[in-house]
Design a protein around this nucleic acid. Structure first.
Lengths: 163, 163
DNA sequence: GTTTATGCAAACAATTTGCAGAAGA
DNA sequence: TCTTCTGCAAATTGTTTGCATAAAC
């Protein structure tokens, strides 16, 4: 592990999330590397949806410490560890968000500016059960995306790629 | 238009859908070509979800009359014409289904075999309105996908690509 | 030491596109 | 004719992978 990595984060929430990640790595006989720590810390400090590319951008000062391939590899580990959820919002790249400490929610997406807003509708869980039962499925989960326009709220710009 | 194209379909539903498509083409100053007619007829006779590749497979006897590039181009016209809906079911290719005469519905997808089952839950529309209002969005629509397992119903096989 | 990770560049796969010749209006 | 289409092959784009080297344990 190189020296940059000991810039450890003292935010208690992030510390806790890092511990969970480390547990997972150990359990799976995966190694605790400086890249994994750096990416995980960065991700845990983001409180919005992000993409592989926007993560890369956040890490641009560490360009010499981590490659794009490694970022993709770490993202897939974190999804497997259920620390991250992967989303498709109708673009041709994936969005991620970290899960821990976030109540289950769905998303409403502005097709003008790409803004993503979370919402919680408790009755969806019950509806999901009902549909699954009726169709004879066991349930893993659901994704509900509502598409619309946020109507030029401040910050609403044309939806650029990989934002 | 080559001679193969005058193998016209007499199913009244398909005839009606073809007319709508032709209207759209005229309105947009697009030409009525044998490829467009062939693809549209084929699509209108499918009553399941399909992909660009499965469509190509259905058209394999016409391989010399139509290319993959043209199929993609026609799919995008038909989506624009709102004759087709495009879906993302968590794979890295798109699914399509034809819309006309199909009540609005959502999907439950088997993550073991890829089976896609439609369901209708009227209260979603109302919930959608409520969320949009609360968040200050105008609505275009929604996509609700439930993921689970159909529990080895007859025909449930491992989910192959592009099925 | 042995195993697992990383970086790089090449590979992938679905989809898109430029272009020259073909077909529709 | 004049315009739009098509087929082809090449380009694109997000993501994945093989492999030699490097780091973790």
């Amino acid at each position: 592990m190189n020296k940059k990595a000991d810039k450890i984060n003292h935010n208690p929430e992030i510390v806790k999330e890092m511990e969970i990640f480390n547990e997972f790595l150990k359990k799976k006989d995966l190694k605790i590397t400086s890249q994994r720590m750096l990416v995980a810390e960065t991700i845990f400090s983001i409180h919005q949806h992000f993409t592989a590319d926007s993560l890369l951008e956040l890490l641009k000062d560490h360009r010499d410490e981590i490659s794009k391939a490694t970022i993709y590899r770490i993202l897939s580990i974190m999804v497997e560890a259920k620390l991250l959820a992967e989303h498709d919002f109708g673009k041709d790249f994936k969005y991620y968000e970290h899960i821990i400490g976030h109540e289950h929610h769905d998303h409403i997406i502005c097709t003008d500016c790409g803004r993503i807003v979370e919402f919680v509708v408790p009755e969806i869980e019950e509806m999901q059960q009902r549909v699954a039962q009726e169709k004879g499925f066991s349930i893993q989960g659901h994704r509900l995306n509502i598409y619309g326009s946020c109507q030029k709220k401040p910050g609403c710009e044309f939806w650029t790629k990989k934002s």
